[in-house]
Design a protein around this nucleic acid. Sequence first.
DNA 1: ACCTGAACACCGTTCAAGT
DNA 2: ACCTGAACACCGTTCAAGT
Lengths: 197, 197
Amino acid sequence: MAKDGYHHKDLKNELIEKGLKILDEQGYEAFSMRKLAAACGVSQTAPYRHFKDKNELIRAITQKALSEFNTSLEEAFLADEDPKGQLKKMGYYYIRFFVENPEYLRLLFFSSAQAWMRKVVTSECHNKENHPYSALKRAVKNYKAAYPDAKQSEEELTLYCWGLVHGIAVLIVNGEIPGGKSALPLAERMIQSENFL
Amino acid sequence: MAKDGYHHKDLKNELIEKGLKILDEQGYEAFSMRKLAAACGVSQTAPYRHFKDKNELIRAITQKALSEFNTSLEEAFLADEDPKGQLKKMGYYYIRFFVENPEYLRLLFFSSAQAWMRKVVTSECHNKENHPYSALKRAVKNYKAAYPDAKQSEEELTLYCWGLVHGIAVLIVNGEIPGGKSALPLAERMIQSENFL
DNA sequence: ACCTGAACACCGTTCAAGT
DNA sequence: ACCTGAACACCGTTCAAGT
């Protein structure tokens, strides 16, 4: 936090935080190592003491964003007791999160994601506690337990719920749907209706 | 097509086609003006005779990709007569198109998309004939006409159908869902079931 | 340990000059 | 009209050298 002249200490965290800020304010394309270093008041090569390369920095930033996202989903989960209500609320929070943090959509789903990176961000983390997929799976399991004769399998429910809210988030954030962000209430109504689940 | 020594003629189209190829084979991050110029056997500055800057080239490439995509949706539309079947088939083709052309997802939805560009690719084109949104709206209108007492409004149906298939496409293409591309049949089954529509 | 400056290979883009 | 080479300001990354 403090920069006692030469040494910086906690530069690593400042890089992640300021990096996320730049990403959010200026967008993915405008993000550069050199700019970030300058923003931290440090030479262009200093970040390389903490991260092997740009990808690893982005990966670290992505993981921070991911955990913010996950926190939001956990909130949704805790905000309701009925399994169906939980699933619906998670859906709404999912969409709202990305409408409020549009740049995160690109970061979490379309960053410089070589295959190895996607693995780190997704599959490898599917069993980890702080990954959205875990939260979703848990909610779906609860739902199936409460409504054992639901027509869809667990697999189908996962794909359906996740797919629907993800797609809606993208369409709203990208302005693909008329009305832009004002389509959020429409999305909520849809999720709350009996047609969804 | 032929390069009669100095002049190239049709360089513009070659840039678009070879650009799309590079994008598809090497990914969005690896795409560069200089590399593309070299691939076309032309100097680094030649592309600027045909496109103001990189964004305009990408915009042109995007429009080509968009029309391929639209063709696929039109095929779906023609492959069925029942409005419900049309809508379902369009959904399946939507997903399959991006599973087969994974890089198009980034290109159409997350390219260097400044606001103005998104407008060009989307809203401004919503009323144009070759835009996916038009095809979707038409199918939804037909559906509402055939099933006038459907519970959802036209607006809701659009958001629901488009959102669902888009999200599923992203999840499959990104390997977010276990099974990877082998989840495509699962998606098809889901769309064909009575739970969807 | 942690940071720096110079250097290299790459970008996007411009501009005066060539055919 | 259409293309080129040199040039500029930016990248990511490496490496020998500084505190």
